[in-house]
């Protein structure tokens, strides 16, 4: 069985590294990006099964990235997990509109994140 592919985008290099390591150790194929624009290019080239993105990033924010990704037909139902260090939670309406599967607040547990990733990739595709 092919490895599930994940794109991880965060401008905090240590966060990208730790998430990538946790997922790789658990059988995922991981590609990383340091900003939104890079993450978008990776999505187009790598066609991942899931995207994990930070909320606040240079070049293109996490929300802008998701908005752009969702415009592409091939990614309308791709599971997306958002990480955020903001003081306030993301608006439920926005989360629903952009079909964001999960939203995790920083600091997060890599173990917990892995659980969410396994959960959303195993769920049937929702449109």
């Amino acid at each position: 069985m092919d490895k599930r592919k994940v794109v991880v985008a965060d401008d905090e290099v240590h966060i990208v590294q730790v998430v990538a390591m946790k997922l790789r150790n658990n059988g995922f194929d991981v590609v990383t990006a340091e900003d939104g624009a890079q993450a978008y290019e990776l999505c187009l080239s790598e066609k991942p099964d899931i995207l994990i993105t930070d909320y606040q990033m240079p070049q293109m924010t996490g929300i802008e990235l998701i908005e752009k990704i969702r415009q592409d037909e091939q990614f309308t139902s791709m599971p997306i997990i958002m990480l955020t260090a903001r003081g306030f939670a993301i608006d439920d309406q926005l989360q629903g509109k952009l079909n964001i599967s999960r939203c995790l607040s920083k600091p997060f547990s890599p173990k917990e994140l892995l659980g969410h990733v396994e959960d959303v990739v195993s769920q049937p595709v929702s449109k």
Binding site: I15, V18, V19, A85, K106, P107, S109
Partner: peptide, 8 residues
């Protein structure tokens, strides 16, 4: 942000 790295 730094706390997230420390925790992880």
């Amino acid at each position: 942000t730094p706390l997230a790295s420390i925790t992880a």
